[in-house]
């Protein structure tokens, strides 16, 4: 599976309700015991919000400005959510299915390093 196939794939909850699209993958270094590779594993997904908000880095607040771009992207940035990999029931091929248990997903900004 290519990472870019996952990007922009629709995300739904266990009842098939849409949660937006995958806009970014959060990756973390794998612990050494998982083989010789110092590679990464997918830790979670960034879901929801606008495509550009993620592409331009505002969804994870990489930038504080300029003021105008921050204003334009502010609302969409707040909508971005984080889905931990453990909650993913199926990664594809058509949709990413996620277990929410009826609860709200955490905002992306809460789990991103400032």
């Amino acid at each position: 599976m290519r990472a870019t196939e996952l990007l922009s794939r629709p995300v739904v909850d266990e009842h098939g309700r849409p949660l937006g699209r995958v806009h970014d993958l959060r990756i973390a270094r794998r612990p050494e015991q998982h083989g010789p590779a110092r590679g990464w594993a997918v830790a979670g997904l960034a879901v929801g919000g606008g495509r550009l908000v993620h592409a331009w880095g505002f969804a994870e607040r990489r930038a504080a400005g300029p003021w105008l771009l921050r204003k334009i992207t502010a609302r969409a940035g707040r909508v971005a959510r984080y889905v931990p990999a453990e909650r993913v029931l199926a990664w594809g091929p058509e949709v990413v299915r996620v277990r929410t248990g009826g609860a709200e997903l955490p905002p992306l900004l809460e789990v991103v390093r400032p």
Partner: peptide
């Protein structure tokens, strides 16, 4: 303009 504002990349040299 976007990268100039990216504090994680630019640090103290950000815009």
């Amino acid at each position: 303009l976007l990268v100039g504002n990216d504090k994680r990349v630019m640090g103290e040299l950000a815009n």
